[in-house]
Amino acid sequence: MENKLEAKNVSVFYGEFQALNNINMKFKENAVTALIGPSGCGKSTYLRLFNRMNDYVDSFRMEGEILVDGNDIYNKDVLVDELRKGIGMVFQKPNPFPKSIFENVAYGLKIQGIKNKAVLKNRVRKALQQAALWDEVKNDLDKSALELSGGQQQRVCIARALAVEPSIILMDEPTSALDPIATAKVEELIHELKKDYTIIIVTHNMQQASRISDYTAFFYMGDLIEYNKTDIIFTNPEHERTQNYITGRFG
């Protein structure tokens, strides 16, 4: 397995505040990497570096390099829009557009200029099948996505990200607003997806990290404390702080 993503000496500042402190990390291709740590530890900021979503935050400043397939994405010549077309993102709260289910999933394709109806239909169907939602909505594709349940909405958002066939998917606490049954479905889905995608997931849920990820990184106060295979992190962590966090002694 190759290194799909890499962070080299990455530090992030919001004005005077340092949110991330000299992070070095390599992400394996076609694996799920979980980022864990207490609130405010910088893991969401870190996740958003990989598709440059922090660019819109005033006073955001970064040092170091983020490499995707070996290329520095913070290079001046990089077209941010193009970069994001290859990296899907799923957000904390389901955020479907106030459009039909079909239009939601087809959004990224239409943005890329695909107009052929047959192609759109096929890709939408495929994405919804991958997101394990097709059977539930195949007869209601014209229904507004806002009428779906929270769990279904989140799967529409996942399908929306999958439809453009990215190679990387970033997930920012994708199940924090969902009930246990919907959470289980999304987790199952993540497990399926890692065959084809490199997935980075931020989560507050320790069990979730241990269930679905291959690698786990523990962040604390802007520092990367420990990064290893998930089973090692959860059974035999090197650092006491990691041990304390995963056993729920703080955080």
């Binding site: 955020n95 557009f97 943005i111």
Partner: peptide, 24 residues
């Protein structure tokens, strides 16, 4: 969150404005 979703898909500001924000 809708604007973020659109940017996250690789939409430009113009596409985001006319395909998401104005309809919404």
């Amino acid at each position: 969150s809708l604007r973020n979703a659109s940017y996250g898909m690789g939409a430009t500001r113009l596409q985001t404005a006319f395909k998401v924000m104005v309809p919404a």
